[in-house]
Design a protein around this nucleic acid. Structure first.
Ligand code: FES
Ligand code: FES
Lengths: 160, 160
DNA sequence: TATATTAAGGATAAAATATGTCCCTAATTA
DNA sequence: TAATTAGGGACATATTTTATCCTTAATATA
């Protein structure tokens, strides 16, 4: 069970957009070159972020994407779910009902298998961390840990 | 990011084996029919559980698998990792170092990206739940929630 | 001893997903 | 008018998951 590359790309792009002035649109081409990932494929991730309402895109020269909400209103979970979908990490196929001893009347779909229940608790714990952590926290961490000098020339590179 | 079917199968097989007498070996064929899954493919999961030391297998007639440790010494995480591997759910490919503004001397591999760090925290929260939950807890839940009658005829079916 | 049964594991194949590319359209700016 | 851009559809390729088949060695039992 491993998340796709799109997740890392999307998180980094969101962090990048969150650091930049809200009135500037950044094209996918620039985000792709800055992060060293294929532009056309990153474009799919950006479209997913847009349709989730996390960024908004605009056409034409000077177009591109900007962040759609304040960074403290965006959780990492929203970003992850935007590109990975909202399905739970454990897919219970109800194999308990394949038990050859069971009659139909015992296959009540209203109860949850104990095993699935435990797996869903783990899934929920994972989501809770991601839901609690906001994009603004990441921006703060980056600001604290990356030398100011590097942030400045990076921002200039992106905006130029 | 969704776990494979093997995980559900392995968890159910482990629960089944944990309920049965320790001195009996159950063949893959029986486990497969009881759970309604393909025998040859389930066999791969059982082999993984065996090489992780969670069950032990023996050859010949009256052979098969039995649980290798007490159920309260086996966590769900061990079972999941046995069949899914131990890789983290987030695969950081260090795209931060693709930043075209960075010189080589800034690409220190000793620090962890803030984003990866957050994702690893979520991964760890997921693992903590699974590490804390023991197979014996599941067996208890099943005993409490499934009618005694059904458990009995199921056990008889498997052992016969 | 002969036979049936079984785990272990290698080889292969089919199906599903993830990853990546190409191209067309409409909107927007200069 | 020309250049730029997101949106999105259609493909193409790579990787992973799921599944089957077959051989070997060990074991129990008749
Ligand atoms: S039936 Fe799906 S986990 Fe038990
Ligand atoms: S470089 Fe991998 S998550 Fe930041």
């Amino acid at each position: 069970m491993i998340l796709g590359n799109q997740v890392e790309w999307a998180l980094h792009c969101m962090t990048t957009l969150a650091r930049l002035p809200r009135d500037r649109y950044i094209p996918t081409k620039v985000l792709a070159e800055f992060h060293g990932v294929p532009k056309e494929y990153l474009s799919k991730a950006m479209q997913a972020l847009a349709s989730a309402g996390l960024v908004d895109g605009t056409l034409g020269p000077k177009g591109g994407y900007r962040i759609a909400k304040e960074a403290n209103k965006i959780s990492l979970l929203e970003i992850v779910e935007a590109v990975e979908g909202k399905k739970k990490t454990f897919n219970c196929q109800e194999i308990r009902f394949n038990n050859p001893c069971l009659k139909k009347e015992h296959k009540k779909k209203d109860s949850v298998c104990s095993i699935a229940s435990a797996m869903f608790q783990a899934d929920e714990a994972w989501r809770l961390v991601l839901r609690t952590r906001k994009l603004s926290d990441i921006v703060q961490d980056v600001t604290d840990s990356v030398p100011e000098e590097i942030l400045k020339i990076s921002d200039d590179w992106i905006l130029s």
